[in-house]
Computed example of a mutant assay.
Amino acid sequence: MTGYDVAIVGAGMAGASLAAAIGTRARVLLIEAEDAPGYHATGRSAAFWSETYGGPGVQPLTTASGPFLQAGGFLDPLGALHIGRTKDAAAGDAFLADFAGSGIALDRVDPARRIPGLRPEWTLGIAEPSSTYIDVAALHAQYLALARRAGAALVTSAPLHMASRQGGAWVLQAGGATCRADILVNAAGAWADAIACLAGAAPIGVQPYRRTMIQLLTDPPAPADLPLVVDIAGGFYFKPTADGRVWLSPHDETACAPCDAQPEDLDVALAIDRLEQVVDWRVTKVERRWAGLRSFAPDRLPVYGFDARVPGFFWCAGQGGFGIQTAPAAAALAAGLLLGCAPDPSVAAIDPARYAPDRLVALA
């Protein structure tokens, strides 16, 4: 029976980045249920990096990830503009208060100067110039390559069928193979609670939510210098593509079971309706539509650390829609916890206790 130090269930961004972070210091197996890694949340990202996305509890991880992503060439300039109407003034004030002292540059601006065709009632604007595009596919591919070069093994089309703690190690059956591992990492995204139950751990309430995205052609075309535009009240966001198209989401959150998420016609129509309430552009064609799952713990913070009740079971889950933009820092933080070593300097100032699974016991 093949033996490993660490078996990671899930080879999306969370699992791949952690495998890359520990691969030179442990024998690692990546177990992926799908035919290829990144099929679900990783492959369906809206592909932007924003320090405010996910809220102030997530921001330290996003900010700490910035230098790695920038140095690797994974980020391109974009900028973000949070907009609202008069009735959203309190939401704008709360947004600024949430990030006061964070070091993020946030400035009140006239949104009509940045968004051509903006309808006159949208008068509130807060610019976040540090926001960027992020090359999700390239980042995921690099993590998989780094893990492979470090000696990590990857098996695909191998859903985990059994996880049993025997003699101080895990005996795992995935696909048609059996192996042993000292530590089992739950990086299964929307399936995190199901994997926990399979391993005899208590679920912590990780809930998947469907999020819809569509790609549009508009008349006039979206200008090349359009920023990421985000409704301060949480009703939509949209961003330009390099060829004048628009990626648009109605910011929907529909609770569902773990699945291969597909877009609903109603959510696509809702997205277009909300866009037309913001700008006077005419939608000429819906070119693509897709949906992904964003999976959250009850308090909307990610979960990193060993389960206090099940030896050798490590959580790396609940990363919502921010798992990609926080991946470098999250992997560094989780690697230190998993290996029991000093944290990487990039995350030394982040308290891992705020993301520990034990905090959720009272919420279960």
Rank of each mutant, 00 (worst) to 15 (best):
T86L: 13
A11H: 12
A255D: 05
A169H: 05
A64Y: 07
A94K: 13
V58F: 07
G340M: 04
L266R: 14
Y143L: 02
Y237E: 08
D5Y: 01
L96I: 00
S295L: 04
I134E: 02
R25A: 15
P223E: 04
V347S: 00
A194Q: 12
F322T: 07
G66Q: 10
T132R: 15
D299M: 13
L226T: 05
Q325M: 15
L275A: 08
Q59I: 07
C179Q: 07
A187P: 03
A329Q: 02
V58R: 09
A317R: 04
R300P: 05
H40G: 08
Q277H: 13
I115L: 10
A158P: 08
A20P: 07
G176V: 02
T24K: 14
K285R: 15
G320Y: 08
H40Y: 15
R288V: 00
L337K: 03
G244L: 03
P328D: 07
P208Q: 12
V9K: 11
A349G: 13
T86C: 00
A33K: 06
G117P: 07
V286S: 04
P258Q: 07
A327L: 06
W170L: 08
G72A: 10
F238P: 03
A349V: 12
V206Y: 03
T241A: 02
D88G: 08
R300L: 12
K285S: 12
F314M: 09
D76I: 00
G38L: 02
P250W: 04
A20D: 08
L266I: 10
E121Q: 15
L124M: 14
A46W: 12
L275Y: 14
E253A: 15
R113A: 14
D243A: 11
A187N: 01
P159T: 10
T178P: 01
D225M: 02
L275R: 00
D344W: 10
A150E: 10
A20F: 11
G321Q: 00
W122L: 11
A100T: 12
A97K: 14
A269Q: 13
R245W: 06
Y143V: 02
A201P: 04
T241P: 02
L228F: 02
D307S: 05
M162S: 12
G84C: 05
G168A: 02
Q262T: 12
M162T: 14
F74A: 11
L228E: 09
R245Q: 13
T42W: 04
A308I: 04
T178I: 11
G167K: 01
Q262V: 14
L146K: 10
F322M: 09
C197F: 00
P298Y: 09
T62V: 15
G320N: 12
R44F: 05
P258L: 06
T326E: 09
L338S: 09
G205T: 04
P120D: 14
G79F: 08
A190Q: 02
P345E: 06
A342Q: 15
D280V: 05
P56G: 04
I8C: 03
A14E: 03
G55W: 05
G305N: 03
I195V: 15
V246P: 01
A94I: 03
D98I: 00
L226W: 13
V279K: 01
W315R: 03
Q277T: 08
D76G: 10
V171A: 10
A158M: 05
T326N: 06
